Simulated scan of single mutants.
Amino acid sequence: MPLHGTRRTAVARTAAALAVLPLTVMPATPANAATVTVAADGSGNHTTIQAALAASAPGTVINIKPGTYRGQVSIPASKPGITLQGTTGTSGDIVITGSTPASTAGTAGSATVLNLAKDTTVKGLTIANTYAAHDSQALALYAGGDRQVYRNVRLLGYQDTFLSWGGTGASQVRQYVYKSYIEGAVDFIYGNGALVIDSTTIRSLDRGSTNNGYITAAATHSGNRYGILITRSTLTGPSAARTVALGRCWHAGGAADAIGQVLVRDSALGGHIRQAGAWQDMSGFSWKTCRFTEYNNTGAGTSTGTADRPQMSGTTAAGYTAQNYLAGSDGWNPVQ
């Protein structure tokens, strides 16, 4: 981040842990959908996910057997309705991994999974970017399509792990992440989409510093009411107490109308979250130019009354539900 121009100062990186999420019951395969199987050992229809995507029509369900799959997986906008799903229900069994930085490949080129298609579902697998030179953003997931769902996934990275991006202007994509795990250190959940992260573990990595990074960096267009919602989730990490910020204000490309919106609600906040300075300035823009709030959180990292921890009222919070973030003009509701 930003998508164009010079990125912020590089910081140290630790290796992404490969903790396995517990077994989750997977939703049924869509009726009458074409189905293909990917297996690295040759026991399926294809040995790589990208080969399966190239051969598949929109709406295909791609079952992925256990293994490690290296290199970028790209789902183009021309193939909506694709499902990528691990066959075991345990996300650590199927790992899609890369180690490409944006400094050499650009933002989209660095993403281990580049998903530009609408109506896609990804479940039961891991997406990782293990770039370790510590000098560039390096995305695990670039989510650039509307109405995308991610269930029981692990997103592992360090700087800019997960981007939700609808392009410049007020155009907005929607994504729903449920019962998953997201890991990083610097702006690792970011973008201008309407993004709901629900019932998910969000782990901040330890940089060994009094500044252990920022969880979010929203660039929500001023014309859009909703940006990033973290709800019913757990914010954790090995970092020292009060060294991690909830986020900072990203005016993408210096755009004055990128007035980021983030709400953290009904979640458990670990003691690694800052009291003073929980929301941070960025690139000369004050965090107060953005729309940052909290509501009904618990845990050691909750606000103790500092002036820079704005709390949303219950009346206002009634209009900032996961369903409202994702409804758009078509009433989309994937919320569990």
Rank of each mutant, 00 (worst) to 15 (best):
P101G: 08
L205K: 11
A317E: 11
W250C: 09
I62N: 00
A185Q: 11
T68D: 06
R309D: 05
T29Y: 05
L18P: 00
Q261V: 10
R232M: 15
R13E: 09
V244H: 04
S209Q: 12
D308G: 04
N324P: 14
Y190N: 11
G223I: 00
S313F: 12
C249N: 13
G227S: 03
T37S: 10
L53C: 04
F188L: 13
L326Y: 11
A241N: 14
D198F: 09
A194V: 06
T321S: 14
R151T: 12
S239N: 07
G166P: 05
G270I: 03
G109M: 09
Y178C: 07
G71I: 00
V153I: 10
T293H: 05
I49S: 00
G89A: 12
Y150H: 08
L3P: 03
L263N: 03
R265Y: 11
N152G: 01
V38F: 01
A55G: 08
S74P: 07
R203I: 11
S286H: 09
L229S: 07
A108L: 13
W165H: 07
S180P: 15
Y131N: 02
S286V: 08
E294H: 08
T243M: 12
Y320A: 11
D330T: 15
V113K: 02
M26R: 10
L3E: 06
V196W: 07
S78F: 09
S239V: 11
Q311M: 14
T87L: 02
T130N: 12
P30Y: 07
I75C: 02
Y295S: 06
A318F: 11
A317I: 13
L195W: 05
G184M: 02
T29M: 11
G124L: 05
T236C: 09
L53W: 06
V11F: 10
A185T: 15
L84R: 01
S103A: 03
G59H: 01
G237P: 08
K118F: 07
P30F: 10
S91W: 08
T37F: 14
L114P: 03
G328C: 13
